[in-house]
Amino acid sequence: MTATPTTEQATTADGPDTAPAVAQAEQHAADAEQTLAAMEERVRDGDEDVTPAQLAEARELGRFARLRAEAARRKAERATAKAAEQERARLTAKAVALVDQEADPATVATAYEQARTALAALVAAVTAHDNALHQAAHLLRQADAPPIIRYVPVQRGEHTFQEAEHAPASRTAPTVEHGNSAALSLSTGRARNTIGTGPTLATLLDETAHQHGVAMPAGETAFTAAPIGEHAHRHADRVRRFLDTATAQTPETTK
């Protein structure tokens, strides 16, 4: 792919740099003015070798040199204006290309729906997992399954202590946490417990925010520093309008 030239490169490609030409023309004009001033001073000093024709010629040369200097400046200004216009056109075209290629609202709307579907599946999986554990723990308590943790006497010197340990557990003789907990064990030392849809979603969003640089509008509280409900209350209407508009657009209207 050919790189787009910068303003400096574009100016050089269009023609030679006009700055030296302007400086040279201005120097010629200054030299002509100095020559005329010197001749006039010679006349004031009584030098009879300076003729009126020479003075007239020097004045005309000075005027011509000033005109050439003005012409060089105007040419430089036109070149600068042309280069600036070309740069504006280049930046405008680049901005439009970015919008066309990478700012497609329909793409965002599609990804949003895919993410919502995936999150719904995650919530459903966690809910099914937790419900199953709650029901299983209830059944095991009805079956008088022993608790996950038991206390055994341990002799240390002259004293006996009750020390907690995992009770033996297997798939045919599980253990269960008594009370309202859904914790249970099908293998000694390995407890199964609920995870919760809220903690799961919160952890997922926090990981996403840190790994992918989730940003809030300038001046607002960071995504992970305020309740999700607060962010949603502030932005849900705008996001919904964006998604509704993006979903309603056809390929022709997105061009």
Score class of each variant (00 low, 15 high):
Glu163Ile: 01
Thr80Tyr: 03
Ala236Pro: 00
Arg66Pro: 10
Met1Gln: 11
Ala56Asn: 04
Thr245Leu: 04
Glu85Gly: 02
Ala118Trp: 13
His233Val: 01
Leu140Lys: 01
Glu252Thr: 05
Glu158Thr: 14
Leu133Asp: 07
Pro199Ser: 01
Ala109Tyr: 13
Ala143Met: 09
Glu57Val: 02
Lys94Arg: 13
His235Ser: 10
Asp47Val: 11
Ala106Met: 09
Tyr112Val: 02
Glu26Asp: 08
His166Arg: 08
Lys255Cys: 11
Arg44Gly: 04
Thr245Val: 04
Thr92Val: 03
Ala109Thr: 05
Gln135Phe: 09
Ala53His: 03
Thr117Arg: 12
Thr200Arg: 01
Ala89His: 04
Arg44Val: 10
Glu113Asn: 09
Ala10Asp: 02
His159Val: 08
His134Ile: 08
Ile148Val: 14
Ala121Asp: 07
Ser185Tyr: 02
Thr6His: 11
Asp130Ala: 05
Gln34Phe: 15
Ala29Glu: 07
Arg141Tyr: 00
Leu243Thr: 06
Val108Gly: 13
Thr127Trp: 08
Pro146Arg: 05
Ala164Glu: 14
Arg234Glu: 14
Gly157His: 07
Pro20Asp: 07
Gly213His: 05
Ala118Cys: 03
Phe161His: 08
Asp17Phe: 12
Ala30Thr: 14
Thr254Arg: 15
Leu186Pro: 10
Gln24His: 05
Gln249Met: 15
Ala19Phe: 12
Val96Pro: 04
Glu8Trp: 11
Arg171Cys: 02
Glu113Thr: 03
Ala202Pro: 00
Asn180Val: 12
Glu57Gln: 13
Ala13Val: 06
Leu139Asp: 15
Thr250Met: 04
Leu184His: 00
Thr12Pro: 03
Ala132Tyr: 12
Ala164Lys: 15
Glu163Arg: 13
Glu85Arg: 15
Ala218Asn: 07
Ala95Asn: 04
Leu186Lys: 11
Gly15Val: 10
Met39Val: 06
His159Asp: 10
Thr194Tyr: 00
Ala145Tyr: 00
Gln86Phe: 01
Ala109Asp: 03
Arg44Asn: 00
Ala81Arg: 08
Thr203Cys: 05
Asp45Glu: 02
Arg171Asn: 10
Met216His: 06
Ala111Leu: 15
Gln155Ile: 12
Ala246His: 10
His166Val: 01
Thr253Ile: 15
Glu48Thr: 12
Ala215Gly: 05
Glu230Leu: 04
Gln86Leu: 10
Ala121Gly: 13
Thr254Gly: 00
Pro146Ala: 10
Ile228Gly: 15
His129Trp: 00
Val123Gly: 15
Val154Phe: 13
Ala38Phe: 05
Gln155His: 14
Ala145Thr: 04
Arg116Leu: 03
Ala30Arg: 11
Phe161Ala: 01
Ala209Trp: 02
His28Asp: 10
Thr224Cys: 10
Glu33Val: 01
Pro227Gln: 05
Asn131Glu: 11
Thr117Gln: 06
Arg78Val: 09
Pro5Cys: 11
